[in-house]
Design a protein around this nucleic acid. Structure first.
Lengths: 226, 226
DNA sequence: CACCGCAAACTGTGATCACAATTTACAGCG
DNA sequence: CGCTGTAAATTGTGATCACAGTTTGCGGTG
């Protein structure tokens, strides 16, 4: 990471600290960094091949989003550990925000959105069949947020994004314990049907049911693994 | 800011970037930095008498919390502007989270909490009588969060904190337009009564009513000032 | 007086160094 | 073999510099 390089050739494209943020975010969501273990700025920097500076920026952001925790005593970084209490709060918050976003998106659902959702739902099914955890989580995430984006509610959308980031590690735990075929009951079709009819309350119910089932499975997995 | 200084004499106390964070946060909440205007790292640093470095950390955090916005084109910082749409989303989120926190706190309400709440409510009344905007906002904030802290729900509490930070500038607008005596109807007494009886639903209703009235006044002020 | 153009100032970003605090490793003693 | 004290390595934090892109200011030209 110490060779001479072209420094900062691009202006409009994303900055290095954003790439680092995304890299750590993905590592967190897919569970590549296990909860409870400590990380350090320099080790992350070395691993990603950048200087500690952009890592520092990215970590600051992740800490603000509660995706990383910082020990107030020795100021050392770590991945927040998974507790039933934390999961309960995250579940409840998700169960309010995400159905709300789905309901707000329903009036603006058009053919292009439904097409995209069908594609993503197919990707979800494929990943489930193959047992590909990473692919499932990515596709599932994309499905939900392709929908939520249409709500045109930037503030709520950001809150939902923060919640997914915090709940990512829990998902990995579920897969590690019950396997990918543990959560198949597909409410996505139900949601898409409601969207096609511009049925806001139907979309709200479908997403609520989808989340509720998933979170229940997570709760079982977390309590069992204690 | 360039004189020789003792550097970093304290370990357990709060770091410089945390002090800077708190300073900017207060400036934002009390409306000392008007929405829409641009700020810069170096100007903030000079104003606070520190190097740009801790300011950078604090700003990173505030941007993640959506208390500051960053123009994606020229990457310049600014305070988010107040729109009716944003207020609507923030209102809705607050109206779910904060009553929930109040309800969760009710079972754990003890004499010490009620004493503290009475003091803070008195401070709120005093500030209203004197027309002291800063004091009102501080006391009102402290009242709500002294209560919310007792819920023992760290995740939800942090979400509520983020929402107050985003809604702070709106409050200042309300005061600027309708004056401090515009929002007097005191639901705090109602809330405290419910807490004393460990009545979770009563506390939920009282806080919801308190918020609802305040947010309605803000909506009127924002729409009128457009 | 209006408009263009260029230079100076200012912006965020990243790298590098310094420093104090903590953690880790290990040699020496019991 | 176990404990302890000390030195080395590692940590987060802050300061300073370099750099490229953007904005701002101002002088000259039409």
């Amino acid at each position: 990471m110490s060779e001479a390089k072209s420094r900062k050739p691009l202006a409009d494209s994303l900055a290095v600290h954003d790439q680092v943020y995304e890299a750590i975010r993905q590592a967190l969501i897919t569970g590549r960094i296990a909860p409870g273990v400590g990380v350090s700025l320099r080790s992350l920097a070395a691993e990603l091949g950048v200087s500690p500076m952009p890592v520092r920026d990215a970590v600051r952001r992740l800490v603000a989003e509660r995706a990383l925790a910082i020990n107030p005593a020795n100021k050392r970084l770590s991945v927040p550990s998974l507790t039933a209490d934390r999961l309960d709060q995250l579940s409840q918050a998700r169960l309010w925000i995400e159905p709300e976003l789905a309901a707000r998106a329903a009036p603006h659902a058009d053919a292009a959105l439904l097409k995209r959702l069908r594609e993503l739902d197919a990707a979800v099914d494929d990943a489930l069949k193959l047992g590909d955890v990473d692919a499932y989580m990515t596709a599932n995430h994309d499905f939900h947020f392709a929908l939520y984006e249409r709500a045109g509610a930037e503030v709520l959308l950001a809150m939902a994004g923060g919640l997914w980031l915090q709940i990512g590690p829990f998902m990995r735990v579920v897969f590690g314990r019950v396997g990918a075929d543990g959560l198949v009951a597909d409410r996505h079709a139900e949601a898409m049907q409601a969207l096609k009819a511009h049925d806001a309350e139907g979309a709200r119910r479908a997403i609520a049911a989808d989340l509720s089932e998933g979170m229940d499975k997570m709760r079982v997995a977390v309590e069992a693994g204690r």
